[in-house]
Design a binder for these strands. Sequence first.
DNA 1: GTGGTCTAGACCACG
DNA 2: GTGGTCTAGACCACA
Lengths: 130, 130, 130, 130
Amino acid sequence: MIRLNYRDARPIYEQVKDGLRHLVVTGALQAGDRLPSVRSLASSLAINPNTIQRAYEALEREGYLYTVAGKGSFASPQADVDAGRRARLLEQFDQSAAELLFLGMTVAELGARLQAAEAGRVRPGEGESV
Amino acid sequence: MIRLNYRDARPIYEQVKDGLRHLVVTGALQAGDRLPSVRSLASSLAINPNTIQRAYEALEREGYLYTVAGKGSFASPQADVDAGRRARLLEQFDQSAAELLFLGMTVAELGARLQAAEAGRVRPGEGESV
Amino acid sequence: MIRLNYRDARPIYEQVKDGLRHLVVTGALQAGDRLPSVRSLASSLAINPNTIQRAYEALEREGYLYTVAGKGSFASPQADVDAGRRARLLEQFDQSAAELLFLGMTVAELGARLQAAEAGRVRPGEGESV
Amino acid sequence: MIRLNYRDARPIYEQVKDGLRHLVVTGALQAGDRLPSVRSLASSLAINPNTIQRAYEALEREGYLYTVAGKGSFASPQADVDAGRRARLLEQFDQSAAELLFLGMTVAELGARLQAAEAGRVRPGEGESV
DNA sequence: GTGGTCTAGACCACG
DNA sequence: GTGGTCTAGACCACA
């Protein structure tokens, strides 16, 4: 389900990283779910396993997954996510909000987008049949 | 007022760019206000003028300021900001909001941050005595 | 009738030059008509006479006007325009046409614009009452 | 195939930019084709790599090519070209047409040049054997 | 004095 | 080997 864009300026390993994190964040992968192995993902995306490995390592440092030698990598519960990642996200949220307000959007409009984002989430338990 | 972080992965010119844009977005610089000259900002930040120049060029392309050769650079009115910039900001807003919701923050908490951002703005006319 | 834009990246003298040439090209100034004096134009635009002088000199080199010492500057007949200017215009025309065709416009669409440009012209004799 | 003119008022990076864009627009470079590397083009034109880099960056912003770090730069499909670029081209087309009509050229003559420009294009697929 | 351009040369991340 | 960033220092046009 991860789509690579070779014309994107972002390096491949970062596209993989963002794609996997997106699966976790949207609830497509629930805590404890097993992620594809480095080799299988590499072959299905037709890229070098080193590149996948790098993405997994970065996500593990951020706390989005954990790896068990010989078993595989698994999605972490949200509580494990690195505090630094949280801080960076909050800063990103505040800055984009401030700039959008400057550009004429209202607090009400942005609040509506928050509601929409909340409505689009898959909560634990809901999506297990997938 | 701009603080550079040499350990940050983001290039310096981008940190300068974001810092200057922040001044415009928060209203610290009102439309028409003159920004520091390339050379003076370079020396006060202790970096090369070319790096500052690059940040100014990028901000001009985004529509946050305009430059008159031989005169200096000046803050643009909000209406001049590039339309593409707005779209990118909305995406950034939505993505950071989605991930923060996953991490356990509530819509109410994020809404409160929106209120805070709105409250921190300096609107045109308010800061003229400064 | 010339409007200066101090936020434009083009230098002032070039804006003046283009503005005057536009008056000639559109037929607002017919061959032999007297242009405003350097001093009067400078004061009406509130800029330095040297800047106006520079624009007049450049237009004289291009052949769009001629200056008689003690009398003033006058619009030239179109035949006097510098051959180099013609060549540069043709190149500009060809290049913009080629690029617009690349971008999906058709020869018919561009031809229609030519017709429109032709229709908008003021021909010698037509506009003299102005 | 790009010729630089050091006596031209236009900066070198812009001459390089226009030369490369011309290759894309005329179809000499088809979508996906690889452009010369920054370093190789710099050495073959005997100018500094930074100057070439600047031209490539500008063309990427206009949408004529895309760059993958570590891989190279590639021609974009026509659809990716920035919308603002199209508007600027139309204005350039109209203005040069208006001035050429003033200088005595006829709509028929300019129409013939459009036909010539159309005839000179290489359409996708045509040039593959080269 | 201002911004705009260019050069020479350096180091880094990426795949 | 590729592009991306940064520095140091230079010259020019503009108002």
